[in-house]
């Protein structure tokens, strides 16, 4: 690791004013620290968000579930509130990384990184969540811009994510055999505003599969999607899977997510 300074503020405003152009926020560090170890980034300072208590915690307010940015994956996975409001979200969180990663990694850190193979983006887009920052609120679809790119501006910090509680939702993931990230993951939700299908891992950024949404709107069953193909062009292709295979996985995982929805 290159050398850097380290600061651990106790409030959001303090954190926002501590961050400079070459600096980085440190959430759970499960992606950032390996990146630093491989010398792929050289921040001047790390601003550790773990001392900010207002960024942690889970609550349900009527039709909405709120998850603080510094809430760990294990806390989402184990939360009675999440399990009862959106079981699919708890199930998704329980399969991110591995046990040790879930004990450190946070929702805020994950979505701010926007790894194309991360799980949370599928849940946020699939559920039509809202990302709250120290400056504004951003719809999930607007938040995830492109490969490792979000709508966050310099110094802007995710504070929490709010999820509308759906009628039912399900997530099915086909893990990359080596890294265990999502080779393809599909989140399906039946919500008050319609059915949403979000796909992660298959493309450069999470996206909605609208053909499947239309089909599921009239018939929310695995059979409704099992014949729907996704165009392979534009999907990711690498040593682990071709675009064609990922396209197939979208169909298979979508059907499994629908079947698992509760």
């Amino acid at each position: 690791m290159y050398s850097f300074d380290y600061e651990r503020p106790s409030g959001v405003n303090e954190a926002a004013s501590a961050i400079g152009e070459d600096d980085k926020f440190l959430a759970g560090g499960q992606t950032l620290i390996p990146t630093l170890k491989l010398r792929l980034a050289q921040p001047g300072k790390l601003v550790d968000l773990s001392g900010i208590s207002e960024l942690k915690g889970i609550s349900v307010n009527g039709s909405e579930l709120s998850v603080g940015a510094m809430t760990r994956h294990v806390d989402v996975a184990d939360s009675a509130d999440v399990k009862s409001a959106i079981p699919a979200l708890a199930q998704l969180a329980s399969h991110i990384g591995d046990a040790q990663v879930r004990n450190r990694g946070t929702i805020g850190g994950s979505i701010s990184n926007n790894d194309p193979a991360a799980d949370y983006p599928a849940a946020l887009v699939g559920l039509g969540a809202t990302v709250h920052t120290n400056k504004r609120s951003i719809s999930a679809e607007d938040f995830f811009v492109d490969l490792f790119e979000t709508a966050l501006e310099d110094g802007e910090l995710v504070t929490k994510v709010t999820f509308p509680i759906p009628e039912k939702a399900g997530y099915a993931k086909f893990p990359n055999p080596a890294s265990r990230f999502a080779l393809t993951g599909v989140f399906v939700a039946k919500t008050a505003s319609g059915v949403r299908v979000a796909v992660t891992g298959a493309g450069p950024c999470v996206f909605r599969q609208t053909d499947m949404e239309a089909a599921l709107s009239s018939n929310f069953s695995p059979d409704a999607v099992s014949g729907i193909k996704t165009e392979a062009s534009g999907l990711n292709a690498d040593i682990h899977a071709s675009a064609d295979y990922r396209a197939n996985l979208i169909t298979v995982m979508a059907a499994r997510a629908v079947k698992a929805a509760s």
Partner: peptide, 18 residues
């Protein structure tokens, strides 16, 4: 892997300062 406050973590992916 070590335990930090009772939870297993990868000590190679955590700063001492954390």
């Amino acid at each position: 892997t070590v335990h930090v406050n009772g939870d297993s973590v990868k000590s190679c992916t955590m700063l001492a300062a954390q």
